[in-house]
C-alpha cells in the first residue's frame, strides 16, 4: 500500500509499505528511499514507540478521523493528512467523472477567514471558495469538482473542525 502524506506546512511525502514483516516491522520506500521502521502501540491510548532506521522516537498520535492525524514527537506537533492509493485514485476519478453534488469540507481545524462564494453562484473545479486559517497559516479552500453553491454553512470568523462541511454544491447543470 502506498500513502500520500501532507503536513500543515504543505510538505508532501510518498510512503510505500513495500513489505509488512509483522513483528519485525515494515520495509518502506519513502520518496524513493528505502527505510526500515517498527511502530509499536505502547498503551492503546495514543503513545507509540517508533524505531526508524535505527533511531528511536517516542511518538503520540491523535486521530481526528482516518485521514487526519496529529503526530507529536519530542514536544513538537504536526498535523498530517494521510491518503492511501485508493482514496487518492477515488479523488482523481471523481474529479474527472460526471458532475455530482459536492460537500466542501475543512481539511483541518481552524478559523474561516473569508468566504468568497455566494449562494446560487457557479464555481469551477479547483476554484477557491473560502480561506481557512489553521496553525497561523492561511489555506485556500477549493471546490474539487465545481458546481452551483447550494448552501453556505459557515461565515468568516467561524471556528471549524477537521472534516466539517463548509459549503454544499449542487451539480452544475451546464457542465458537459
Amino acid at each position: 500500500m502506498k500513502y500520500f502524506l501532507k503536513t500543515q506546512s504543505d510538505r508532501r511525502l510518498e510512503v510505500e509499505v513495500a513489505e509488512d514483516q509483522g513483528e519485525q516491522g515494515f520495509r518502506l520506500v519513502v520518496d524513493g528511499e528505502e527505510c526500515q521502521a517498527v511502530l509499536r502501540d505502547v498503551d492503546r491510548l495514543g503513545q507509540y514507540a517508533l524505531v526508524l532506521d535505527g533511531r528511536s522516537y517516542a511518538v503520540s498520535i491523535e486521530e481526528t478521523d482516518e485521514q487526519h492525524l496529529y503526530v507529536n514527537i519530542a514536544g513538537e506537533s504536526w498535523q498530517v493528512i494521510a491518503e492511501d492509493e485508493r482514496e487518492k485514485a477515488a479523488g482523481a476519478i471523481a474529479a474527472q467523472g460526471p458532475p455530482k453534488a459536492e460537500q466542501i469540507k475543512a481539511a483541518m481545524p481552524g478559523v474561516i477567514i473569508s468566504v468568497s462564494a455566494e449562494e446560487g453562484q457557479t464555481v469551477g473545479a479547483g476554484e477557491t471558495v473560502a480561506v481557512l486559517e489553521a496553525m497561523k497559516m492561511q489555506n485556500e479552500v477549493q471546490s474539487q469538482h465545481g458546481g452551483v453553491v447550494e448552501s453556505l454553512l459557515v461565515a468568516s470568523g467561524d471556528r471549524v473542525e477537521a472534516g466539517q462541511v463548509l459549503i454544499k454544491l449542487a451539480p452544475n447543470p451546464d457542465a458537459e
Binding site: L5, C35, L50, W78
Partner: peptide
Amino acid sequence: LERVAAIVAALHRQR
C-alpha cells in the same frame, strides 16, 4: 521530525 511525523501517519494508517 516533520518527515518522521509523516512516516508515522502512514504507518498508523497501515496498521
